[in-house]
């Protein structure tokens, strides 16, 4: 895909975030064009998850700007950002363990539905119709990730791999324009990872921009249109997979890490 010509969807400029004395993000700037898969890689502690948390409004930034389609979102609340079309999964899975798998995805439909306390309490016709749509839509997303047979089980009882898929389905149910995946392949076996790659491609085909943080280099090199490399809260390289493979700075950053960089 020719990424230069697509309009920019996410624009991050000079982003700063510190915890106490530790600077997790040091003036980070980058762009994500619409409709691509962008991977963010880097050693542990590089600030990747912090970046996700700041973009999705879970943590407020200390400085800098974030714009979605030209709308500035830095410092806004997580729920507002969700309504602007950003959804995500979590590195340490955060499924609603005591709710069923289907109900988990139905929570994802929350912002796409509006029934209030009166119409739900009395089950007014509008609410019934909406509830039916929520259920059907959630079921479609479960089918999309391949969990349709698990719908009535408690989410907390699923194995890790399926919980990760459930998070993807839940995030997709919000009808996002951009999906942030935080280490989606972590803890998956080879076969599951292959399935994941196909799934990410299918997500892209729906017109959703995908940004992922990932350690599995095979997966990253295989599916990404662009890669950004971070270390110590800074961007040290950015470009197409081929360029990144040969970047001396990247190789240096990974030298101290136990990552399989022979693939690079």
């Amino acid at each position: 895909m020719n990424t230069e010509s697509s309009p920019v969807f996410l624009h991050v400029e000079n982003l700063e975030k510190s915890f106490g004395g530790v600077q997790a993000l040091k003036g980070l700037s980058f762009k994500v064009p619409q409709g691509i898969i962008k991977a963010i890689i880097g050693p542990n502690g590089a600030g990747k998850t912090t970046l996700f948390n700041v973009i999705t409004g879970i943590l407020p930034p200390n400085g800098g700007a974030i714009a979605l389609n030209g709308i500035s979102i830095e410092g806004r609340k997580a729920r507002e950002i969700a309504r602007l079309g950003v959804s995500r999964t979590f590195q340490n899975v955060e499924v609603f363990g005591r709710m069923t798998v289907l109900e988990n995805v139905m929570v994802g439909r929350h912002i796409q539905s509006r029934a209030g306390i009166i119409s739900t309490g009395f089950r007014l016709p509008g609410m019934r119709r909406e509830e039916r749509q929520i259920r059907e839509n959630a079921m479609q997303h479960l089918t999309f990730v391949g969990l349709e047979n698990r719908a009535t089980e408690l989410a907390g009882n699923l194995p890790l791999g399926e919980q990760k898929l459930l998070e993807v389905a839940r995030a997709l149910a919000t009808d996002p324009k951009m999906l942030l995946l935080d280490e989606p392949a972590g803890g998956l076996n080879t076969r599951e990872t292959e399935g994941l790659a196909a799934l990410i491609h299918r997500i892209l085909e729906q017109g959703i921009t995908v940004v992922l943080v990932e350690h599995d280099m095979n997966l990253v090199m295989d599916i990404s249109d662009e890669i950004m490399v971070m270390n110590f809260g800074e961007k040290i390289a950015e470009g197409k997979p081929k360029q990144i493979k040969n970047d001396p700075l990247v190789i240096e950053a990974y030298l101290g890490e136990e990552v399989d960089y022979s693939d690079l």
Binding site: I58, R79, A82, S87, E94, F96, G97, R98, M99
Partner: peptide, 11 residues
Amino acid sequence: DSEVAADAMGV
């Protein structure tokens, strides 16, 4: 179950 995930879902 997870306030952070609920938040991220726009609740």
